[in-house]
Amino acid sequence: MINARGNRLNAAAMHGALIVYTLIALFPVFVILINSFKTRKSIFREPLALPDAESFSLIGYQTVFKQGDFFLYFQNSMIVTVASLFFILLFGAMAAFALAEYRFKGNTIMGLYLALGIMIPIRIGTVAILEMMVATGLVNTLWALILVYTAQGLPLAVFILSEFMRQVSDDLKNAARVDGLSEYAIFFQLVLPLVRPAMATVAVFNMIPIWNDLWFPLILAPAEETKTLTLGSQVFIGQFVTDWNAVLSALSMAILPVLVLYVIFSRQLIRGLTSGAVK
């Protein structure tokens, strides 16, 4: 009896703690979202109230659409993220396959060389990266960002994918070789489809940091036509600091795409984080 009551108390305490922390985690997002739909007056008078018929207003969103080119920023972020992920996955999987499948001189050293970048942040090399992008004329192009994010994502991608590729059965590959398939065909037709879950893990790990990065867009591609959504909202908010409606709406518009992505990929992301792929 005492035990049962103790258990129930325990469960209540656990839920209590989790609910409190969940509220702390979600509260700021909630406040920004509800206030973005309110008139300036009610933002200040009743910051915690939900928008109702009287206080509802889209004035902030109108300013955002008129003054900022958010559609272009969104498109830039999309291109950069998708292209970087494509190259990280393609090049990373190819290199991982070479390291996992073949024995050759320098295999271990190559693996270590590619793993160096897992711990060393690419930002340290920013001065020389900018110099290189200026010299090659890539500065203020989306290619500069795509190249940097590809290089940044490759080390962990190679590391995770080669772990998974070692688990693909040798018999399968050897059977394919007997059937006369080339090494390229084995990689693209046989191995790649088998490691698809690991590829998804790598993709979600890289997606969020690339989408959210402020440093490289600020330094390598600050021009109006190459601004990413993160940089675009930073600059927009900086200019409209006193226009609370506009700031709140811009923030909400920056939150929305990430939230949508999260809802779509959260299962994949959490599975990746908890599968021990990072260990």
Partner: peptide, 8 residues
Amino acid sequence: IPTILSFV
């Protein structure tokens, strides 16, 4: 959720 939001 906060972890997926940008610093901005």
